[in-house]
C-alpha cells in the first residue's frame, strides 16, 4: 500500500520535472523572441500614431512639410541636429522630450510660425496634450527607425503611385472641394476677381503665377505659396504676425488636386 503511494508520488514528481523541461530549455530564446516582437509591435503602434498626429507637419515619410515642420527622417536630423541645438542626451531622448513639451517658438526662422500659437503643440497628457508616455515612446521608436534609411544604410524606393492627372475632371472637382474647405475664407471665390478678407484673388493665378518667382512655373509657385508662405510676400497682403498665412494642412494628394483646380 505505502509502496504504491510512494511510487505514485515519485512518478508524478518525475512527470512534473519532465513537463518543465521544454520551458526551461527554451526560456532564454522565448524571452528574446518576445522582446523582439514586442519591439516591432511598438514601432507599428508608433507608425500609426505618427500618421495620426505628426504627419501633417513633418510629412508622412518624415520629409518635412514646407514651413509647417522640419524633416525627421533625413540624414541631417540623425547626424547633425543634436550638435546644432547642443543637445547632450541621446537623439531618442530629444524626440521624446520635444514631442512631450512641444515648441513655443521654432529654432529656425522658416519655422517661426505666426507668433501667436506654439509652432508645435505639446503632446504629453501631463502638458496638455493627448498622448500617454508609452505612446510618445512608441512614436520615438518609430522616428528613430528612420535611421537606417536616413544614413543610407538601407535604400527604399518609394512606391510610384499613379500620378493624379491634372486634366482629369475628378481631380479638378476634388480640388474644388479642397479649395472651398481650406482656402475660400481668405481668398474669396476662385472664379471671382474679388479677394477675400486676407489673401489676394486667385482667379488668374494660373497665368499670373508663371514667373512671379524666378524660374518657377505657376504650379510650383502655388505649391510654395501654400507650404512656405514666407518665401515670397506680396505687398499689401502679407501680415504674417496675424496668423494670415495660407498655412493649410493638406495631404499630398489634396495639394495636387487644389493645384490642378487652380491651374485648370
Amino acid at each position: 500500500m505505502i509502496q504504491r503511494a510512494m511510487l505514485g508520488a515519485v512518478a508524478s514528481a518525475a512527470l512534473l520535472a519532465a513537463s518543465l523541461v521544454p520551458i526551461v530549455s527554451g526560456e532564454a530564446e522565448r524571452l528574446q523572441r518576445d522582446a523582439a516582437s514586442r519591439a516591432g509591435a511598438v514601432i507599428e503602434q508608433g507608425a500609426m500614431l505618427y500618421g495620426l498626429h505628426c504627419r501633417t507637419c513633418h510629412g508622412s515619410r518624415g520629409e518635412g512639410v514646407g514651413q509647417l515642420g522640419p524633416a525627421l527622417g533625413d540624414g541631417h536630423f540623425f547626424t547633425k541636429r543634436s550638435q546644432e541645438v547642443g543637445w547632450q542626451s541621446t537623439l531618442r531622448e530629444y524626440v521624446v522630450s520635444t514631442t512631450s513639451h512641444g515648441r513655443l517658438m521654432g529654432t529656425r526662422p522658416i519655422y517661426a510660425g505666426n507668433g501667436t500659437t506654439a509652432v508645435m503643440p505639446p503632446w504629453h497628457e501631463d502638458h496638455g496634450g493627448m498622448l500617454r508616455s508609452d505612446e510618445i515612446a512608441a512614436i520615438a521608436d518609430f522616428v528613430l527607425n528612420w535611421q537606417a534609411t536616413a544614413t543610407g544604410k538601407v535604400e527604399l524606393k518609394a512606391l510610384s503611385l499613379p500620378e493624379q492627372n491634372p486634366q482629369d475632371p475628378r481631380t479638378i472637382s476634388r480640388g474644388e472641394q479642397v479649395f472651398e474647405k481650406h482656402c475660400l475664407r481668405c481668398h474669396g471665390a476662385a472664379n471671382g476677381a474679388a479677394s477675400g478678407p486676407a489673401g489676394p484673388p486667385l482667379a488668374n493665378i494660373a497665368t499670373l503665377g508663371n514667373g512671379r518667382r524666378e524660374g518657377m512655373t505657376a504650379q510650383e509657385y502655388i505649391r510654395e505659396s501654400i507650404l512656405i508662405p514666407a518665401a515670397y510676400r506680396r505687398e499689401g497682403y502679407a501680415d504674417p504676425g496675424k496668423g494670415q498665412d495660407c498655412g493649410a494642412v493638406l495631404t499630398e494628394s489634396e495639394l495636387a488636386a487644389v493645384i490642378a483646380f487652380l491651374s485648370r
Binding site: 505505502i2 512518478a11 512534473l16 513537463s19 520551458i23
Partner: peptide, 24 residues
C-alpha cells in the same frame, strides 16, 4: 499520514504537470 498525504502530493504534482504542458 502517509497514505492520503502522498496521494494529495501525487495528484497535485501531476495536475501541475498537465497545466505546465497546456501553458507551454
Amino acid at each position: 499520514f502517509p497514505d492520503r498525504l502522498l496521494l494529495d502530493l501525487t495528484l497535485s504534482m501531476s495536475t501541475l504537470a498537465v497545466l505546465v504542458v497546456v501553458v507551454t
